[in-house]
Amino acid sequence: MSRDQPTVSVIIPNYNYEKTLRACLESVYAQTLSPLDVVVVDDASTDNSRDIAREFPCVLVASPHNGGVSAARNLGVAASRGEILFFLDSDIALAPDAIENAVTLLTGDPETGCVHGILDAEPLFDDGPVETYHVLHAHFWRRRSVGVVGTAFFALAAIERRVFELTGPFDENLRDSEDVEYSDRLAATHRIRLTETVVGRHDDVDRLLPLLAEQYRRSQLLIPVAAVERRRGGGLRANRTSGVLAAGLVPATLPLALFTPWLLLVPLVCAVGFAVADPGLSRFVARRKGPAFLLWFTAVHFTVHLALVLGAVHGGVRWLVDPRFGPSVRRRRRERSAAAVAP
């Protein structure tokens, strides 16, 4: 790769994001470093996404069926030409210098194979307090983790094509947690850097029930992906382990009150433990939005944690009984083992 002016391909997977796709593409074409090409992979959208993409001089790859974000990103790579691949979700609008800053970091450190950025503390479109909750949390935990990390999130990430080819494609069996599985392979050979100089504004979920459903769905793959990971150190954590445990213990200990009402103190103590598990996050929210919003934030955060715990338990059970569930590497290992013992 030329170290002076590397070419960049922006790859945007999209599924029914007509609300944000135009803002996303406008931000890409307003970059201080112009990309060589922009590839929008429409994953069988049923809205007007494809018409919006055609308003811009991008390459539109129209998938005939919905294969998920991993498959869409792989299609985008195949249709692109740049030496650096910049992956961008279609519900994010980039700051004007995001691509240039990512390229500078990649070319300045030969050992860094991937650079990914943080989400702004303000949403792309402000749709209410639920979205404000999620955007603040997403900004905070990424912001405090900047530096060399073990996990990359490809909603907003740049990787050299040669590194991508060495690591291999995204696992198309995964529609969630694909970033974590891919990072496990990537971190074995290259450094991953999270930076606050690559920023995008995200349009997040704005209603509570869809937010809980999303978190429940995504957390189902936490245990299957963790079970096949080879590298444990340096992985990013959005939530404190103590907070997750405390939240899970609240409903688990509520039945103790059947023996005596005094035992209600146990889930109450767990709830207080959850509330104080991440003081940095609480201070950040209070500074940004005030103490009243912090109470709302903490209540929503608690319900999100319950969804995460329930989803992780469900996913763990699915992983035990369904060999098709989870990363493809597990299935390949089983197939190799079966072949080895076959007569």
Score class of each variant (00 low, 15 high):
residue 224 P to D: 09
residue 34 S to E: 13
residue 145 S to C: 09
residue 168 G to Q: 07
residue 326 G to E: 12
residue 328 S to F: 05
residue 227 A to C: 08
residue 203 D to R: 05
residue 54 R to T: 00
residue 275 A to M: 04
residue 9 S to K: 01
residue 194 L to Y: 08
residue 296 W to R: 14
residue 124 L to K: 02
residue 234 G to P: 04
residue 223 I to H: 10
residue 148 V to S: 05
residue 104 T to R: 15
residue 99 I to E: 04
residue 200 G to Y: 00
residue 123 P to A: 02
residue 282 S to R: 15
residue 25 L to R: 07
residue 213 A to V: 13
residue 126 D to P: 07
residue 42 D to E: 10
residue 270 C to E: 04
residue 113 G to V: 06
residue 308 L to N: 07
residue 175 R to K: 07
residue 227 A to K: 11
residue 78 A to H: 07
residue 120 D to F: 10
residue 101 N to I: 07
residue 151 T to A: 01
residue 29 Y to I: 08
residue 337 S to M: 12
residue 29 Y to D: 00
residue 187 A to R: 13
residue 99 I to W: 11
residue 145 S to P: 03
residue 148 V to T: 14
residue 191 R to T: 13
residue 117 G to T: 05
residue 70 S to W: 01
residue 145 S to M: 09
residue 263 L to I: 04
residue 18 E to W: 11
residue 95 A to H: 13
residue 301 H to I: 01
residue 229 E to D: 03
residue 162 R to P: 03
residue 297 F to V: 12
residue 265 L to D: 00
residue 252 A to W: 08
residue 72 A to K: 05
residue 52 I to K: 09
residue 289 K to V: 11
residue 201 R to F: 02
residue 78 A to T: 12
residue 285 V to D: 15
residue 291 P to I: 09
residue 51 D to E: 14
residue 31 Q to C: 08
residue 26 E to P: 00
